[in-house]
């Protein structure tokens, strides 16, 4: 279990992370969200022991993170951290040895992972000769070759096609089942929604939203109504609590202030020819934009 308690980090006079706390249990996938410069990478670096925090503690299974613990952590960085002149095998052995594994152990695990990602034929190929997708797979293998207790994934799906995204997702789920704690960062909210049970949104180093995804969505007042049929847009916009109405392919999407508005909308359109009326929770993307926007306005 990873426990981050009240960490604060300054770069000179600039506050990068402000009193950040969260917990990631074993087998849990935790989403750390934030716009660029929000403090995500700084947080990851502090967890990895690359940076010292000015205040607070970070514990993995009750132990302060130092070089005796980092062997149990896997890290997929946002930018590809691969030495492109090396072959896939050399690169994985290099990183694996730095994790304290023997060459034999690495070779065995490498074969399994290459098989899983269907890239066995690239084992002795130089990394610079691989496609971006395959390079990302290699980077992922390098991060998990040590069966980490904690895996940090900073934008792991960047530049991947849907097939590769799916392969990587399956691998992440497998690790989760084995009890690996995973911290996940992505700008693609659909990935976070799919993966993370728990999340935290950072704005300028400060936590603006934290909790279980389900609770966050439930507690978020604004909802969306999907309507299919002949309706009068202007008529709906006059209802108090309706924020906007937009046509999306066959449906109209009505954004409302809270669930109390649902009934008013339904009453207004009930005399029209309606074939669909679905109330949905706001997407994480909307919540994220709203929360980050509010914080910037402040």
């Amino acid at each position: 279990m990873l426990k981050v308690e009240h960490i604060t980090k300054y770069y000179g006079k600039n506050l990068a992370v402000d009193d950040l706390s969260f917990t990631v249990k074993s087998g849990e996938i935790f989403g750390l969200l934030g716009s660029n410069g929000a403090g995500k990478t700084t947080t990851f670096r502090m967890i990895m022991g690359l940076l010292d925090s000015n205040q607070g503690t970070i514990l993995l299974d009750g132990k302060k993170i130092d070089y005796s613990v980092t062997d149990q952590i896997g890290f997929v960085t946002e930018e590809r951290s691969l030495m492109t002149k090396m072959t896939v095998k050399e690169q994985i052995i290099y990183y694996g040895r730095l994790k304290g594994l023997t060459e034999e152990e690495i070779q065995k695990k490498l074969d399994i992972w290459l098989e899983k990602f269907k890239i066995t034929e690239y084992k002795d190929r130089k990394i610079k000769e691989l496609s971006k997708g395959n390079q990302q797979k290699v980077q992922f293998i390098a991060a998990v070759i040590n069966n980490p207790k904690l895996l940090i994934l900073d934008e792991p799906f960047t530049g991947l096609d849907p097939i590769n995204v799916e392969q990587l997702k399956q691998a992440i789920y497998e690790l989760q089942k084995k009890g690996c704690s995973i911290i996940f960062s992505s700008h693609q909210m659909e990935h976070i929604e799919q993966f993370c049970e728990k999340l935290l949104i950072l704005v300028k180093g400060k936590t603006v939203l934290e909790g279980y995804l389900k609770d966050i969505k439930e507690n978020y007042q604004k909802k969306n109504i999907k309507i299919r049929g002949d309706i009068n847009k202007d008529e709906i916009l006059t209802i108090p609590g309706v924020i906007s109405i937009n046509k999306k392919v066959d449906d109209y999407e009505v954004k409302i202030e809270n669930s109390k508005v649902v009934e008013k909308v339904f009453q207004k359109i009930s005399h029209h020819n309606i074939t669909k009326f679905v109330v949905e929770e706001a997407s994480l993307n909307e919540i994220f934009i709203a929360k980050v926007g509010e914080s910037y306005d402040e």
């Binding site: 690359l50 890290f75 492109t84």
Partner: peptide, 17 residues
């Protein structure tokens, strides 16, 4: 510079001081 430019440094330094 090779290790810095390829960003391998972050992974290396996370494992050795």
């Amino acid at each position: 510079n090779e290790e810095k430019q390829t960003r391998s440094m972050e992974v290396i330094i996370s494992n050795v001081s």
